[in-house]
């Protein structure tokens, strides 16, 4: 399990802290625990997603500037998961999801479900949130969601020996406090 509030730049990824954060925690986890990429899945969760890239693209559009296709790709977490899958030879399922509440539990439940598959041995779970911007602040206010106080990511490598999750749910911070097997 690893956490980070910042990460070094990742080659080819620009503008946002989202992808470097994901890469930092996932990279550390996977380096510390090497395994068979063919029997590994990746699950990424974020309630809001990469608002920095998404909203930069939107404001450029409104400003009449030429759209950068890189911003579409990088605003979707497929790009960084694809980058990681290539780096570590991971050919199992890649999943990215969003939940309004209890994202930590949603990620762990998804990992648990994926491990029903006898063709998989482990799932790297990554949770990430950015502090956001005016748009996400307005959305959080409307939805009664607490805004993240800082950019933050957590990664947890789950296998069949990992203890079942505690009832009562986890937010991403609680996920980071989870005891490792």
């Amino acid at each position: 399990m690893t956490t980070a509030t910042s990460g070094p730049p990742v080659s080819g990824f620009i503008e946002s802290e989202f992808n470097p954060l994901v890469h930092e925690v996932a990279h550390r986890c996977l380096l510390e625990h090497p395994g068979d990429g063919a029997r590994t899945a990746l699950v990424l969760g974020s309630t809001i997603g990469d608002s920095t890239t998404t909203d930069l693209a939107s404001t450029l559009l409104i400003g009449g500037q030429v759209s950068n296709p890189l911003l579409f790709m990088q605003a979707t977490s497929n790009a960084i998961l694809g980058f990681l899958s290539k780096e570590f030879g991971i050919t199992g399922p890649l999943v990215s999801l969003s939940a309004m509440t209890d994202l930590g539990s949603a990620l762990l439940d998804t990992a648990d479900l994926l491990l029903d598959d006898e063709e998989l041995d482990r799932v790297l779970v990554v949770g990430v949130e950015l502090t956001g911007n005016d748009r996400t602040a307005a959305a959080c206010l409307e939805l009664g969601l607490e805004r993240p106080g800082e950019d933050f990511a957590v990664a947890l490598l789950v296998d069949r020996d990992t203890p079942p999750r505690q009832p009562g749910g986890h937010d991403l911070r609680r996920l980071a406090e989870r005891p490792t097997p």
Partner: peptide, 9 residues
Amino acid sequence: AASDAFHVS
């Protein structure tokens, strides 16, 4: 489901 582990795009 499965991934290519090949390229970001």
